[in-house]
């Protein structure tokens, strides 16, 4: 079967959606994202990126592939390699077998990514569906069309070192995916996400993590020429809008998932919850908009005002996920 590229807003859910569709199971990107319970929030000040804290709006890399593998019983096989040569040879062998192969790569070394977006992020997922000589045919979900990547560049991207080093990780399906029981999978996924957002014991994760971030933002200096404070604010927005998301920290994708789950299973209450999550996503965007205006000095630089917005979002999300959990409990099997 000819492989079909699909433009997606997040790399990992996009890869899984394309891979499953290629193997005959039509699963949209939002469904892949939602069924894997990929939505989250985490503020991790002890992990530093260029001196700034890690702020994540979703589960750690690899979680989507693993959760779908477990939930749908896909028999995904992962392989990592010590030597780049062995890793490239294995990729070639799999492609010769006609397999479509998922790769974990560093986005920095991929030449087709616009230069300004190439940062050292080691868990960018993409699919390789063929090879012509020394050029690989790549379906990168965040690119609009299929692209090509030279062997040398791909090797560098697969064997980048550092945090989350991919070690040449590749993965592929070993059996045709069975049709899922969307109702049972959906209920379980909703329970997991509500639990992560509301009841993670660590105060840095979920709704409490948003409040913790708000407190850190509040403590920033208000001085107009405080470059460090502005970088911090810009960093939050960049993590939210730019790093592998469809905007608003993945809230819109999850809303699309709720809508689609409602349509597939006929469980109506999810429809209204999706609309509420879209509003929360809009609030996240307004936060980003206000932050950018402050960075550009179009309005006064006031971190406490941004902190207040974050607190408002936190309480909205708290109510939202509590109601989501109630809707899940009321969902008769």
């Amino acid at each position: 079967m000819r492989f079909q590229h699909q433009h997606a807003s997040h790399c990992e859910s996009g890869v899984m959606s394309s891979l499953l569709r290629h193997h005959g199971l039509a699963l949209s990107e939002p469904m892949a994202f939602g069924l894997a319970s990929a939505l989250a929030f985490a503020y991790l000040p002890f992990i530093r990126l260029n001196g700034l804290p890690l702020i994540a709006y979703r589960m750690p890399p690899g979680a989507i592939v693993r959760a779908l593998d477990r939930g749908l019983d896909l028999g995904v096989r992962f392989e990592t390699f010590r030597s780049p040569d062995a890793g490239m040879a294995r990729l070639d062998a799999l492609l010769d077998e006609g397999k479509v192969v998922g790769l974990q790569t560093s986005i920095y070394w991929l030449p087709y990514i616009p230069p300004d977006l190439r940062f050292h992020f080691n868990a960018h997922n993409l699919l390789v569906y063929g090879r012509e000589g020394d050029e690989y045919l790549v379906s990168d979900p965040v690119a609009e069309t299929p692209v090509r990547c030279a062997r040398q560049d791909l090797q560098k991207a697969r064997f980048a070192k550092g945090v989350l080093a991919p070690k040449g990780r590749l993965y592929y399906l070993t059996r045709p995916p069975p049709a899922g029981d969307w109702r049972a999978l959906g209920r379980r996924a909703l329970a997991r996400t509500a639990h992560i957002m509301l009841h993670t014991p660590l105060p840095l994760v979920g709704v409490r993590g948003i409040r913790w971030l708000a407190r850190a933002v509040e403590r920033l200096g208000c001085a107009e020429d405080d470059g460090a404070a502005k970088l911090y604010i810009g960093h939050i927005v960049r993590m939210q809008e730019e790093i592998g998301t469809g905007g608003a920290g993945f809230r819109f994708i999850y809303a699309a998932f709720l809508q689609e789950l409602a349509a597939t299973t006929g469980y109506g209450p999810l429809e209204a919850l999706a609309a509420r999550l879209v509003e929360i996503g809009d609030e996240w965007q307004q936060f980003a908009f206000a932050a950018a205006k402050m960075i550009k000095r179009r309005i006064a630089f006031e971190p406490p005002a941004l902190a207040a917005r974050l607190r408002d979002i936190a309480s909205r999300e708290q109510r939202f996920f509590a109601d989501l959990n109630q809707a899940r409990l009321a969902w008769a099997l």
Binding site: H235, E241, E242
Partner: peptide
């Protein structure tokens, strides 16, 4: 907004 924070 994305352009502002990325350029920054």
């Amino acid at each position: 907004v994305e352009e502002v924070v990325t350029r920054q």
